[in-house]
Nucleic acid binder design. Structure first.
Length: 283
DNA sequence: ATCCGGCCGT
DNA sequence: ACGGCCGGAT
């Protein structure tokens, strides 16, 4: 007897929400290239990109990516430099590196086929609780629920769920409102309802984490250093880094260290005094 | 000038 | 449980 009865959504609330969200989707649902496929790798690429960027801005980069890396093998075999180049502008570059690492694991551990089991997907780098479920939802119409902040905001606004409710409560609610057999349509509908209708701005429901200003932040310097290295294949010395970006208040050593730890860059040559995109000049 | 967001290391 | 990671939109 371990059933959680505490967060049971009444039947009529479930029906009302489903009608509202699916009705909105029938009238205002968006068409995206990743909604036209059931290929799990293609869906995985879109889900990783959508983690951090609004859908409209993902579209052209998604199409370029799929053209260049149509399957796990082509991504696995590519130099990191070309992967980061194709990713640049999307932000959070370490995710491109993780996506490639995932593709390599798919090739080496899963015979080149992206697994459809959330538990297996969860073992891949860059794939967490949300994405491990969203991939089989959108690719295979799997009857499980997944919750991102859009969906969380809908539950808070439409069902009166407490804004500080922990994830397990949100997932318990999501399980109960999922219309069986229509998981893909339902989650697409929730996304569009949250992104177009129940926006964060409109509802005043804040997402859980905030961040500091971007300009001249450590993230901004990371972006600048990576941009320079992508434009200059010969790499740079630590003195170059200091000269170009040392006027800021940040410890550039720590920033370089972070980029190294994320597998974006590596040190080489001249007593490890130079940095370059990891894998540059490998043949 | 502020907002948005899932994953990961600590 | 918390803070770091990106760049474009508004």
């Amino acid at each position: 007897m371990s059933a959680e009865q505490a967060y049971c959504v009444p039947c009529h609330e479930v029906a009302k929400l489903q009608e509202k969200v699916l009705g909105f989707y029938r009238e205002h649902g968006r068409v995206f290239p990743w909604r036209q496929t059931t290929d799990r790798y293609t869906v995985m690429v879109s889900e990783i990109m959508l983690q951090q960027t609004q859908a409209e801005r993902v579209v052209p980069r998604f199409e370029a990516w799929i053209k260049c890396f149509p399957d796990p093998v082509s991504l696995a075999e590519a130099p990191l430099r070309s992967v980061l180049k194709l990713w640049s502008g999307l932000g959070y570059n370490s995710r491109a590196e993780r996506l490639q690492r995932s593709a390599r694991l798919v090739v080496s551990e899963f015979c080149g086929v992206v697994p459809g089991d959330p538990a297996l997907l969860r073992t891949l780098p860059g794939i967490g609780p949300y994405t491990s479920r969203s991939i089989p939802v959108f690719a295979d119409n799997l009857d499980i629920a997944t919750v991102d902040t859009n969906i969380r905001r809908i539950f808070v606004h439409e069902l009166g769920i407490n804004a500080s409710a922990p994830d397990r409560v949100l997932y318990a609610v999501a399980e109960q409102v999922l219309p069986r057999g229509r998981s893909r349509e339902w989650h697409n509908a929730l996304m569009d309802y949250g992104a177009l209708h129940l926006t964060a701005r409109k509802t005043g429901i804040a997402s859980r984490s905030r961040q500091s200003t971007f300009l001249h932040s450590p993230r901004w310097y990371r972006g600048r250093i990576l941009r320079y290295l992508l434009d200059n294949g010969q790499g740079m010395t630590l003195e170059d880094v200091e000269e170009r970006y040392g006027q800021g208040p940040h410890d550039l050593g720590k920033i370089i260290e972070g980029m190294e730890r994320d597998g974006i860059i590596e040190r080489y040559g001249d007593g490890e005094r130079r940095i370059r995109i990891r894998g540059d000049n490998d043949h």
